[in-house]
Amino acid sequence: MNIFVKTLRGLKGLLSGMGLTFGYFARPSKVITQQYPENRNTLKLPERSQARIDLIKNAETGRYNCIACGLCVKACPNNSIELTKFKDPETKKFRPEKFVYHFERCLVCGLCVEACKFDALRMTSEFETAAWSPDDLVEILNKDDPWAHDDKSDIGQQTAPDKNEQTASPARDTDRQEHTGAEEKTIQPKDRSPK
């Protein structure tokens, strides 16, 4: 008798599972798939959604808010930001010469944004960041500044930088002099190789 009860109970369990799957099969309205690239236009990401960092521009002056203080560089756990700065002769303030963002190393942790006291850095939700090679992920964030155009030849090799060495190349020097003629100083990520 026991075996019959067991068989029946087993059968009931199997059938109820089948009922469940058939229930979903019969109700196509329950489908939850989102057809991603097609629904790109209607895609809604939460405000806070963070995928990468970006510099904030001042709407009035058209300049980046960043004053190249280097706090974000210090805050970053993964040395994902490299920063060189110069003094703007007009405003007598420091400005980033090149704000290099190593997205390939970035943890998207948001610590840099938190560290920035000047409302110069933000997280964006632009998540389509795939690239063919890690080099493509290195980006100059202040790319609108005329002196920081797409020249990436001298970046990306400084995983263990020497603090005393100036990393200026001749081409870049002339570039800078043309535009600004100001002195420059490099802020490098701090060296965290174990002592």
Binding site: Y24, F25, V31, Q35
Partner: peptide
């Protein structure tokens, strides 16, 4: 398609 709809997906599209 059957698999997809049983799993609340749409299958190949």
């Amino acid at each position: 398609k059957v698999a997809g709809h049983m799993q609340q997906r749409v299958g190949p599209m």
